[in-house]
């Protein structure tokens, strides 16, 4: 699915957090959103997936006007992996992932065999099959995030939004999660904080600074030393890592 968000404006209190930002994700493209803390990445994403109501702008998923469509309809097409998942009551991993089927269920419709197959497939993809009966709250941060990803996969979305999905995670979990999402082969819009990961996984990047798009383009065009210096306010040199052959960064104050 193709996502188009145009002229998004979001205020929190009196402060303009997102100022007329437009982003576009083509069919099956993995698009990254980078920028320092507080630049408005998360707020923009929340505006797109209807957690916040934007003060201006439009969001389209193919032909569907996201901001004017009921939540249930949107959630059948759009899956979201958020930053925090704080809970006060415990569910098992299987029950958590089964909740991903909610958008496709009518009010009183019970879960059937095909739902369970979809859930098993999602657990398999996230390498969580052995965790089915574990309690969610007893899991580590990386495992919890994988459960949330599995829930989103079970939702069978045609487009996925990720809000710093690898925050606080060790490098192995970061790679696991991003690879898993990349392999789904659907359109993805992801806020990322690790530039090397962004360079490696994204087909296209939007760099956000102070609520505006500062630069956009292919990763190697956006992630230049000059741009990074301007966006993150650090001195930076880029080089090709001789072992991985990927773009790498060296920072200094």
């Amino acid at each position: 699915m193709k996502l188009t968000a145009t002229n998004m404006e979001i205020r929190i209190g009196r402060k303009d957090i997102v100022k007329r930002v437009s982003v576009q994700v083509q069919e099956k493209q993995f698009v990254g959103l980078i920028g320092p803390n507080g630049c408005g990445k998360s707020t923009l994403l929340k505006g797109i997936y209807k957690s916040l109501t934007p003060h201006g702008g439009e969001v389209f998923l193919d032909g569907m006007n996201v901001l004017r469509t009921p939540e249930k309809k949107v959630s059948q097409k759009l899956g979201v992996v958020g930053q925090f998942n704080e809970m006060h009551f415990d569910l098992t991993v299987h029950q958590m992932v089964l909740l991903g089927r909610t958008p496709h269920k009518k009010m009183l419709e019970p879960d059937n065999g095909s739902d369970r197959e979809i859930v098993d497939e999602a657990l398999r993809r996230t390498n969580l099959l052995g965790y089915k009966d574990r309690s969610f709250l007893s899991l580590s941060g990386g495992e919890k995030q994988r459960v949330v990803l599995a829930r989103t996969i079970a939702q069978q979305p045609e487009f996925m939004i990720l809000d710093e999905p690898t925050n606080h995670l060790d490098v192995r979990y970061q790679i696991e999660i991003l690879s898993c999402v990349k392999n789904l082969g659907i359109g993805v819009l992801a806020a990322l904080h690790d530039l090397e990961m962004a360079a490696h996984y994204c087909d296209y990047l939007y760099a956000v600074k102070d609520g505006e798009v500062y630069a956009h383009g292919r990763p190697e065009d956006v992630l230049t030393p000059e741009n990074i210096e301007e966006i993150y306010e650090v001195k930076c040199q880029t080089y090709i890592n001789p072992i991985t052959n990927h773009l790498a960064f060296a920072y200094n104050l």
Binding site: S51, E71, K73, G82, F84, N85, M87, L91, L99, P103
Partner: peptide
């Protein structure tokens, strides 16, 4: 089903289509 979704909190519930 909706009661279970409530346990996830507002943010996650919206992404599962429940206000």
């Amino acid at each position: 089903r909706i009661l279970n979704t409530m346990l996830l909190g507002d943010e996650s519930a919206v992404t599962l289509g429940i206000n």
